[in-house]
Design a protein around this nucleic acid. Structure first.
Lengths: 190, 190
DNA sequence: GATATTTTGTGACGATCGTCACAGCGCTGA
DNA sequence: TCAGCGCTGTGACGATCGTCACAAAATATC
């Protein structure tokens, strides 16, 4: 919990009352490797604050997993669409390592927001940050080629390369595993 | 203004007090074709509710415009990153036709939210909807090929095809104009 | 309505990518 | 220690894409 509260405080300073109002919305949970945080078809009614370990989100298209995001320590993972609309999730979120998360329950969060206006603002900030990250990777695909996308991740998210396998990364970057392997080779030569 | 208020009411019912609190944040403005709503290097301190006409957002990479979004009547256009963080915008938003928008000023909006808690909630809803749209097009690129992306737009956003030129659309779909032309040709045959 | 400008179609060609196939490497567990 | 498994590298080949070039069609402008 301490990590989460420290994180939230970097977003905005929270009064003791707001923290007290927030507490009932929080649950700590451990996940084994390859255990689902969210599964296709379920409704997402949580924000997952990643305390330790990391997870990935992916769609299954024609039986093939396509990664759409990685979430590491101090990130918040969720399906913003399902979370907001109450529709069933079309994507999965799965632990890539043993993982511990603080689960922020949607309904309890709304109850807390009704009590403490700071929580409402906090929720807005969280969603805005999530939206900014979405935008970052959305534009990445519209603006750059596969090799430029790799460069971007190397420069701006080096930790991702250290923890994610080439196979998983290639799915995220939208290219075949072999292509990513060759991109790296081409650069090593020049 | 009426259109905007009708739109906001579909998101959540607003009391007369909330509407009154919101009014000072609103300005109606007309833009000529090719006039900027937001220019690279500026800080985005507005949400643009599109009342009439449409606009596009684009980045300039190596002197080439790359479209990242189109915004039509009843959409809200903004740079969520710049709007939220106060950093300078890296993208442009420009009118593709004569356009009228209702400009929602950021600072005034925050003042209104401090007065009326409904406005805070409304702001959160707007941002969440914006985030959902971002996610939609973000996954579009990660999951599908160029021709599948065209299919998706044809099915889910047909109005876009009717109003946007092939050249502009190809930039948005991340392929060369010629490629998009050939994709359409290939399908017409089969 | 004639002209200028923009938009779209198409051919050619080289570069890149996806797919299939297989080999090597490192880690894990019996 | 050795077999099994997952991850990565690489070769071959066909498909697709980007680029340059130019013609045709559609649209805008006066």
């Amino acid at each position: 919990m301490e990590n989460l509260l420290r994180y939230l405080n970097t977003l905005m300073p929270l009064s003791d009352e707001s923290v007290a109002a927030l507490m009932p919305a929080l649950t700590r949970q451990a996940f084994r490797k390859n255990e689902y945080l969210l599964q296709e078809g379920q409704v997402c009614h949580s924000l997952f604050y990643i305390d330790n370990g990391y997870c990935r989100s992916y769609h299954v298209i024609d039986g093939i997993e396509k990664n759409t995001g990685f979430f590491f320590e101090n990130d918040i993972a969720t399906n913003i669409n399902s979370f907001g609309s109450g529709k069933r999730s079309e994507l999965n979120i799965i632990a890539c390592e043993p993982l511990t998360a603080v689960i922020i329950d949607r309904d309890q969060l709304f109850r807390a927001a009704a009590q403490a206006p700071e929580i409402e603002t906090l929720g807005r900030l969280c969603i805005r940050l999530f939206a900014s990250k979405q935008e970052e990777f959305s534009t990445l695909f519209k603006l750059y080629s596969a090799s430029e996308r790799l460069e971007y991740v190397e420069k701006h998210h080096p930790h991702m390369l250290q923890r994610v396998s080439l196979t998983q990364l290639s799915s995220f970057l939208g290219v075949a595993r072999e292509t990513l392997s060759r991109i790296r080779k081409r650069r090593a030569v020049s």
